[in-house]
Design a protein around this nucleic acid. Structure first.
Lengths: 356, 356
DNA sequence: TACGGTTGCGCAATCGGTTGCAGGTGAGGG
DNA sequence: CCCTCACCTGCAACCGATTGCGCAACCGTA
């Protein structure tokens, strides 16, 4: 009894259809079948049709592993981001995947959870699977280490905070997609000042580098506009968004005229906690978020925020990588502008002071 | 001049390190190197150490394509879901990816956008890449077609709506992860009735099958509890969440005592639009959502909702697939319970009628 | 009929690991 | 001193598709 004998299974567990099977059915060689499916002009139109018909009949699906082993291309992109749950990264991931898919690429996604070890593991995974390109969204690894582990010609850094990268003047660094956080934050503070607020505070978020640039910009803008009142900073515990009660109490005790928050999630969480404490927004205090997540538009009150073009970031990241694959070199980076969206959460401030 | 000569590049564009290189450095054959790295006991401990040291020194990363071509395993899972942007699927994807990663698997994710063609394309992609397992979240394709295109032994259906599947009594169908939408919805309606509401309406959502079961359950519960007032249904336009103004106007005109919504996003959108129209929630009308997305907990008023264990769904989906890979057969499915979370958006209703 | 030029197709090598099988080496016992 | 038996290690085939190169068949023409 041959080892492959044994009890005859109905059909085996669905044996994979190989190119060889297609070739046999079409009565041509493997190579001809391969070329026919690739629409190689050296194969006669008639043969091509025959092969394609055979492939369709057998529902042939080529094996990506075998192909990419030979052609050294996987048509796969790697995406590393901190967390798939938060709205901003969800948007980025969604746009990235959509753009990739439309251009015929698949996406392997890893959530690094802002953890060094996990992020390094992700890079290893991308290398193992020989991703044609890799996009890193706001990593805790240094750009230097990233470029060392992944060929810079197939690497895109989606870096919300452009100060954490060495910034040379001139055009954006190749392969870096940035947002102009400073300008965005500046416009938010300008808005508050124009509305007559003077005592402006800042509520910190958990991500160090991008928090720093935002906080500094708020302070700098106040200085530039000649405000003498020092900016108070409220330090957020790590799980501030999940449990903003203590932070809110601190803020309520001080009650600045306006509060600029690290991001929308923090702002919305604080709005909720402050409501518990009887602080009315915007009447007692104005509040500004950052990111422009969808829920900021329908919160009560609706949240003024600095909108980040997250979908655009994901889209550009994917298309840059794909372009790099095809042209052999990474296109220039971009610096995306942010946009202040004024809503109810600062309207009261405007009314209170701005319209005497 | 040999063709591979030419100007000497500094190092080539980082030639990939092969197993062969490791073997040479360790002065053993490829096969020994391979076995050593796999901790094959037939290789002496000393040799294993040498090889591992060589691999570490060269920063060897095996080529997944080559390996899986041979072993017929990719350590990759496919995940098909409608949209990465919405909070529920973000949760599912996040938990799925995390569980997979912890067990040493990578995730290839495709957003099908509730489109037949794109979903079929996704399945093809998973087949090409020979995913060891595939999870489908709430597809527009029929379970029948799915099982035909993907080997059922490596397929998990994450199906929020368990009525759209042939439901036999007894244990859940293997490879199907369901939520008990009917019970969940029933508890929500019970809550409203207990609070004294009688004129209860339902606001439709865009997804046909799961919408149907939810609407029917509301109506059935009302009947069962002896309510004669017919349930009014508000039909939502497709983009109801993005533009719920018209729907809100219709609802405001009728103003039921309580409104049960297809999901949280619709509920929150309606709350916003109703606020514009001067409808106070919960005083003028109670409102209930479905899903338990994070923002439902901090909206103003906070939203009563039927919470779906989305993270659990993703986690179980991944672990079922991995178990199926290892054991050769798909484990039994599960029917996950939902939980009513009562918050402010129905408290007013309770006060108004429930405490005479 | 013979010959040059196309055109269409197939042979076989190749990508990089993994693994069945066989062979070599060393130690220990008679 | 030789033989046996483990114990390690290496050879070579294999996974499935792609592709450089060469050959066969067929055309028209001299």
């Amino acid at each position: 009894m041959p080892s492959n004998g044994g009890p005859i299974r109905k059909d085996g567990p669905r044996r994979r259809v190989l190119l060889r099977d297609v070739a046999m059915l079409a009565k041509v060689s493997d190579s001809t079948a391969s070329r026919a499916l690739a629409d190689d002009q050296r194969i006669s139109a008639a043969t091509r049709e025959t092969v394609k018909a055979a492939a369709a009949e057998l529902r042939y699906v080529p094996d990506a592993a075998a192909r990419s082993l030979r052609v050294r291309r996987t048509r796969t992109l790697g995406l590393l981001l901190p967390d798939l749950r938060d709205p901003v990264h969800g948007q980025v991931a969604s746009a990235f995947e959509q753009e990739a898919r439309q251009q015929g690429y698949s996406v392997m996604v890893v959530a690094g959870e802002r953890d060094l070890v996990r992020e390094r593991l992700a890079l290893r995974i991308f290398t193992e699977h020989a991703s044609d390109g890799v996009a890193i969204v706001s990593s805790v690894l240094s750009p230097r280490e990233l470029r060392e582990r992944i060929d810079p010609d197939r690497l895109v850094l989606v870096w919300p905070d452009h100060h954490s990268l060495p910034r040379r003047s001139g055009p954006p660094i190749r392969g870096v997609i940035q947002t102009d956080d400073a300008s965005g934050m500046r416009s938010a503070v300008d808005h508050l000042l124009d509305a007559g607020c003077r005592r402006i505070a800042y509520a910190e978020g958990g991500v160090r580098a991008s928090n720093a640039i935002r906080a500094e910009t708020v302070a700098a803008t106040l200085r530039d506009r000649g405000i003498r009142t020092p900016m108070r900073t409220f330090a957020a515990p790590v799980d501030a968004w999940r449990n903003p009660g203590d932070l809110a109490a601190e803020i309520a005790a001080d009650l600045p005229e306006a509060l600029v928050c690290y991001d929308d999630q923090l702002a919305l969480g604080l709005m909720d906690a402050l409501r518990n404490l009887g602080v009315r927004i915007p009447d007692d205090m104005g509040i500004v978020g950052f990111d422009g997540i969808p829920f900021a538009a329908i919160s009560n009150p609706r949240l003024t925020t600095v909108a980040v073009p997250s979908a655009e970031m994901g889209r550009v990241a994917a298309s840059s990588l794909i372009q790099a694959v095809h042209e052999g070199a990474m296109p220039d980076g971009v610096l995306l502008p942010l946009e202040l969206v004024v809503r109810e959460s600062t309207r009261g401030a405007a009314i209170r002071e701005g319209q005497p």
